[in-house]
Nucleic acid binder design. Structure first.
Lengths: 332, 332
DNA sequence: TTGAAAGCGATACCAG
DNA sequence: CTGGTATCGCTTTCAA
């Protein structure tokens, strides 16, 4: 069933049938009804594929995320989806697993399918990434990332300042030996948070020993591994500042499994802000911006670009807030 | 840049260029190289859109899920994505919010875009749903659902038996006044679990009072609401059997917030099986099938159909296991 | 091994 | 308001 069949059956031309499909007002009401009826009777389903081909692009937006199982991202994605759906765009999700190759592969697909836009919630800087991004013909918005060597619209938070604040808070509570469970090298958010931690430690005169910086892969398992190590090899660390929520959750769980307490046995503060934090028996203090809000901002930005906004790239910096909950013990 | 441009520049015909695109062996090696070079130099990106249009369908599979923030689903989706990506299919995610209209809208989109297949992780039975499903020209696989009035490939678990087993276990531990926090009416998995609970209660001679069945919307908030109510209006309930993990998590969290204990103040058993269960300070006993495994089964089934399997619809029933953890107190 | 021409299913533009 | 025709970018015969 194509519009040609519908045209033949209804006795009109395919031009007119096409007009009905697009709700073109220049069609007599009675004609429209007749054609609609024929479509219904014959179970006609318009081919968006053909329409997209003519239009030159498809009403889909790709979201690249590192790990949808991470509820922080999941919430963001959900919000983006809501906003885009309202404008008639489908949201396509790619789970990169923080793997640069997979990122690249999906970006290529987006280009080949002529997607309307791309939102990247993760981006590992590499020559390969830049090469693809340069070829990409559609607008790109970065979420929680910025790329040093290119200028894209970005929705970010003041990672450095926020991480600084969280560290400072710990220090003001009397902690001096603070371990930082850091994220992925090459990911700007992780790096900025690490830098904030380092600066605060320096400014407040706390020595950063080599064993006080641990790199993780942002997954819960990794947080568990750290907890395990701290339990197995007791040290003088009194607090940990964890770069994302998934790892913090893993850390806490493993800690509790050994019948250790938070904050009695160790103080914890986590980056990220998500409702899941409230689901833990001891609420974890945290710093960050709600992921849903960031998602909405990104969705609106990409829509603006798709709709022809050709203004200069815009950097939206949202303000991360420190949420004091119950996971830090004052040492004073 | 289209294949016509490449043809012109390279001096070959567009037929030959097209052959190169598809890795057709019937092209002289030197020709292939020349054309490839021209493509690279001119930043040519093939239009999968045009190719899909000719092929009549697009290499994408739609997954409809109720709530991607629910980690049980998220894990499943991730596994599906892994399997499909290996075969060159993109995974498109729709978050229905358990809303029949949104389900319908996305199914229509799948039809219009000529998707290769659809995996439904949620399906609210309604005439509308059946109407759309009947028009759909692509294979459909149901995950954790079965539809009474149509026959589709389904990956399910023995919800009834498993729920029966969980309830029976509670009763054998000495509980008799067991509340069931049920799911959505019209969703087969929820209904089957409720039925299993009812049968077990009946078989074991436990009365099911009206206040012992509460319907929820499968979200965490709803679990919290129940906990709140049980705390506010003390009753003689000694155990709750919760139909999914998201609600169980909400329940437990709210319970702990009031400084109540599990299982000392109430015993809890949850349906679903996901690694997140281990993330709770008191591990919640549960019954279910790992969502990742179910996802993989579904992905393989849809691939088989896409690749032309026209055999009779298949019902894959996976065996749900009871995981005894620490959330049920023996009352003997 | 290569090329010419006929689609795929819509939209767009120009006439009438 | 309606119809005819070119077009979108690629695949697919069929010939050569």
């Amino acid at each position: 069933m194509t519009i040609i069949d519908i045209a033949r059956i209804s006795g009109f031309s395919k031009s007119t049938v096409s007009r009905v499909l697009k709700d073109d007002p220049n069609v007599k009401a009675s004609t429209r009804e007749k054609i609609r009826a024929v479509m219904r009777e014959n179970n006609f389903i318009r081919s968006e594929l053909a329409a997209s081909m003519v239009a030159g692009s498809i009403r889909m937006v790709l979201i690249i995320t590192g790990d949808i199982e991470n509820s922080y991202y999941a919430h963001s994605v959900k919000k983006i989806e809501e906003v885009l759906a309202r404008e008639g765009f489908m949201t396509i999700l790619c789970n990169s697993g923080y793997d640069a190759d997979k990122e690249a592969r999906y970006l290529n697909l987006a280009a080949e399918f002529r997607f309307a836009g791309v939102i990247m919630m993760t981006a590992i800087e590499s020559p390969q990434l830049y090469r693809i991004l340069d070829r990409l013909q559609c607008p790109v918005v970065l979420l929680n990332r910025h790329l040093r060597q290119r200028s894209f619209d970005s929705i970010i938070q003041n990672n450095f300042v926020a991480a600084y604040g969280a560290t400072e808070y710990l220090i003001k509570q009397g902690h001096r030996r603070i371990l930082h469970l850091a994220g992925i090298k090459g990911a700007s958010a992780s790096e900025d948070r690490l830098a904030g931690y380092l600066k605060a430690m320096e400014d407040m005169g706390c020595e950063v020993r080599q064993d006080m910086i641990v790199y993780g892969d942002l997954t819960g398992e990794c947080g568990m591994a750290l907890a395990e190590r701290l339990i197995a090899e007791p040290s003088d660390i009194t607090a940990v500042f964890i770069v994302n929520f998934a790892m913090a959750m893993g850390f806490a769980q493993r800690w509790w499994m050994s019948n250790k307490k938070i904050p009695d046995d160790i103080s914890v503060i986590s980056y990220d802000r998500t409702s899941l934090m409230d689901f833990m028996p001891v609420s974890i203090s945290s710093v960050g911006v709600d992921s849903g809000i960031m998602g909405e901002e990104a969705a609106n930005r990409i829509l603006a670009r798709i709709n022809g906004d050709t203004g200069p790239t815009r950097l939206v910096v949202l303000d991360a807030k420190l949420d004091i909950r119950g996971s830090v013990k004052p040492l004073l």
